[in-house]
């Protein structure tokens, strides 16, 4: 198959402002958006800033927005777009721009630091921990996260309402909270924190995080909604509370 021509419309700029620049590139079959960006960088714009590492969809570095949709650029094939088309590539919108396609994602490291760590129960008499596979299946899905922060980027709670950044952990962190809360060995209870300080109730379960997750983690259905249900158990269900009191169950 022959090469096709595309116009890459890439955002160039830094914190003080910027503009779109168009670059014509030829693209061979099998190339991904990140390859096309690298070709622009190699042939026409040596100073183009782009973050990447693995080119295999595993490091989560190359997140950007392609034609307005949050994506891993290394996993987005150029064949998705008809030859000759203009493809817009912009940096993630929710985080401060450093340069061109590179954003400062430290917001996510900040919210990660706020997650109370795993607090395992005491070891068994033989000095080990024991868990069954069925207890840990749920949590394993959450461990697939590659921290690309596309879910944090697309979440309208902070994307469109940055005033909530100071009290919203975001979908990636909800996945982490869920992994800890559902862990069979963990003893901590993070529900009050989630409700009062981490903005679980700001999420209106509109599922954009799930839609963009490159690891296909069911963020909303398997992490956020079960956490919301646990918060209902603890704060909004008087009948369940009475039932738990009467039966002495948790």
């Amino acid at each position: 198959m022959a090469a096709s021509e595309y116009t890459m419309r890439i955002w160039r700029g830094d914190a003080s402002g910027g503009a779109f620049c168009d670059y014509r590139v030829s693209v061979e079959p099998g190339m991904v958006v990140l390859d096309a960006i690298h070709r622009v960088q190699a042939t026409q714009a040596n100073d183009l800033a782009v973050r990447w590492n693995c080119k295999a969809g595993k490091c989560g570095s190359c997140s950007a927005e392609v034609n307005g949709r949050p994506r891993l650029t290394c996993m987005t094939r150029m064949e998705l777009f008809p030859p000759g088309e203009t493809i817009t590539v912009t940096p993630m919108r929710t985080f401060p721009l450093i340069r061109d396609l590179v954003t400062d994602v430290s917001f996510n490291f900040g919210t990660a630091k706020q997650v109370p760590p795993f607090q395992p129960k005491p070891k068994e008499p033989d000095g080990t921990y024991r868990m069954q596979q069925e207890d840990i299946d749920r949590v394993q899905e959450f461990h697939k996260c590659i921290e690309c922060f596309l879910c944090q980027n697309v979440c309208h709670v902070i994307r469109d309402h940055p005033e909530h950044k100071k009290h919203f952990a975001g979908p990636r962190m909800f996945v982490r909270y869920a992994a800890l809360e559902m862990h069979p060995l963990d003893t901590d209870n993070r529900l009050e924190l989630l409700k009062e300080k981490m903005g679980l109730e700001l999420c209106n379960i509109t599922k954009c995080c799930t839609e963009v997750c490159p690891e296909s983690i069911h963020i909303t259905d398997n992490a956020i909604i079960p956490l919301k249900e646990r918060v209902v158990d603890a704060y909004y269900d008087p009948l369940a509370r009475v039932f738990r009191k009467l039966t002495g169950t948790r």
């Binding site: 697309v154 309208h156 994307r159 469109d160 309402h161 903005g199 379960i205 509109t206 954009c208």
Partner: peptide
């Protein structure tokens, strides 16, 4: 909830399409 928050309330109308309203308090 997802369906009508998106389609009737436009918060957000679709992913990476901006919310129509400036204020937002979710389900708090």
């Amino acid at each position: 909830r997802k369906a009508y928050y998106r389609s009737f309330w436009w918060a957000p109308p679709a992913c990476a399409v901006p919310d129509v309203r400036t204020g937002y308090s979710g389900e708090t």
